[in-house]
């Protein structure tokens, strides 16, 4: 059954039709939440809340809109709200040096005990490292990168999902990519320096 018919039924209160949509989108919603929140547990809660919110507010869904982008919009908002609730908890930036108990600066990039430089390099190259860089980005940049690079949304779809203009999407995506790239390169270069020093 096509999505429009399912949505018409959902609007009449048909939970089973909504469950079909959950089945179709659950993995995408969960993955967006996971990459945004950075933890599986938080992602699970956020994804579930997103579906509940969507079901609760289905009457507000415009029939001519795309359910996918509407759902992603809700998902992004749920994730943002959740992070906002936790704003009192410390957010560690990759850029800001952390002071140790002895007042010495601790370089977060070299936190992994004393593994060999090769091992360090591998750790930094792995997926959790990339995720850490995502986590360090401002929320607006994080979500636009997730939607574009991981979910493969078109610019037009992103304008709907983020409720902003094409101009905003283009400039924000451009800045988000540049910042992401700079962080990756910067850390890689630091890593190369530490490798040379060890040698």
């Amino acid at each position: 059954m096509d999505e429009k018919k399912l949505l018409a039924k959902v609007k009449k209160g048909d939970l089973e039709s909504f469950n079909i949509l959950v089945e179709k989108y659950q993995k995408h919603v969960y993955n967006i939440a996971y990459r945004f929140m950075g933890s599986r547990e938080d992602a699970s809660d956020a994804a579930q809340e997103a579906f509940l919110k969507a079901y609760r507010s289905i009457s507000k869904f415009r029939n001519d809109a795309s359910f996918k982008t509407w759902l992603y919009h809700i998902t992004a908002n749920v994730c943002r709200d959740e992070l906002r609730k936790r704003k009192n908890t410390s957010v560690i930036s990759l850029d800001v040096p952390i002071m140790g108990d002895d007042g010495q600066e601790i370089d977060r990039q070299l936190k992994s005990g004393n593994p060999s430089p090769e091992e360090q390099f591998e750790v930094k190259e792995n997926q959790s490292f990339v995720q850490e860089v995502i986590n360090s980005l401002p929320e607006d940049y994080r979500i636009i990168l997730i939607l574009r690079e991981l979910q493969g949304l078109s610019y037009e779809e992103i304008t709907e999902a983020l409720n902003c203009s094409m101009g905003t999407v283009k400039s924000r995506l451009s800045r988000a990519r540049k910042l992401f790239k700079d962080k990756i390169i910067n850390i890689r270069e630091q890593n190369d320096i530490s490798k040379r020093q060890v040698r």
């Binding site: 959950v22 995502i134 990519r177």
Partner: peptide, 28 residues
């Protein structure tokens, strides 16, 4: 930029946690 984006795009899709579907069905 291309290299950095490649590392981003290569992030794997994560699987749903066990019990996710049951929980969402119950909550719905």
């Amino acid at each position: 930029m291309k290299l950095a984006l490649k590392s981003l795009r290569e992030l794997p899709e994560v699987e749903l946690p066990p019990g996710f579907r049951q929980e969402i069905t119950k909550k719905l």
